[in-house]
Computed example of a mutant assay.
Amino acid sequence: MKKISILFLILASGPLMANDNVPVIKPIPLIALKKKSDQYAGVCHAVENRCTESAKVWKEKGVGEGYYLTDSTPAIIKIRRVKNNYIKDGEWNFSQYRGTDHSSDGELNREEISVFPALYPINKTEQAVALVSKWSTAYSGGGRVEEYADFLILNSNGSHQLAFKDIPFSSSEMIRACFSEEDYAKNSHCHDESWSILNLKIIDEGKSYYSWKFITRSYNWPSFTDKSSVTVETSEQVKTPLQRE
């Protein structure tokens, strides 16, 4: 099945409105550290017994001095670097978090819940992470994958608060359209394919919370056609953190 790369698009930002004076806020990507690096060793020393096989260590991209450890629990731990010392500065555990059940159609099964490697500003002082749940099913010669994100505000006391719930994060589906050797011999594209990707834009309108614009681009590529036949549809929705529908 087509593997959708969403890292760049989910972190992209640009003008939300025609007013160029409205500040656009950029999410902070987290960059994975190599296991043999001194920074990796320093973080692991600060969080004893947490650098397990499933753990990954991250650093804020750019000039930020924040370090983070995520694991399959799932959980995220924040570490600060003070001179040459690494100090644990917060931990948020999501092991009891389940999110929305998407198995109602009888096809999809939950694969995993994971923390996406990025920090999303809620306002000038608070940040959120995306807890992404992955659901999938296999077809003969294809399959379907859907990912949904709950954006959770990280409170300083280790608790978290739901900012946005069940946001479609990405999806892909592949359905086989060739069933014989003759079919495969005649056609180079033997699947009906579709996929979608989320693009997030955050702006500061001077309110208590930033406005978030969720832009979903959905792609469709019919079988027996070349890639120029791909069609794109875009849907947009603006939401405010903690707003309840």
Rank of each mutant, 00 (worst) to 15 (best):
D166M: 02
R244G: 01
K59W: 08
E65T: 07
Y139F: 14
S229V: 05
Y86P: 11
E91M: 15
S103E: 13
E233C: 12
G206H: 10
T234M: 04
G99F: 01
V47Y: 06
K78I: 08
W92M: 09
V43M: 12
E111M: 09
R81E: 05
M1Y: 14
P27M: 07
K88P: 02
A185Y: 04
L11F: 01
S172N: 12
Y67W: 11
M174P: 00
N123I: 04
L198N: 00
T137G: 13
I87T: 07
N155W: 07
E147G: 01
T70Y: 10
V115N: 02
S133Q: 12
G99W: 14
S156T: 15
K201R: 04
P241D: 06
N85P: 05
S211P: 03
R244F: 15
D204K: 03
D20I: 07
S208A: 11
L108Q: 06
K165Y: 08
K239L: 09
E112L: 15
S188C: 04
I153H: 06
E60G: 03
Y184E: 11
F116W: 00
N187Y: 06
V22P: 03
A41I: 11
E91W: 07
F224L: 01
S13Q: 13
G14L: 01
K88N: 05
R81I: 06
W195H: 13
G64C: 06
N19I: 01
I215A: 11
H160V: 10
N49R: 13
I215H: 09
A177S: 11
F8V: 08
G206D: 05
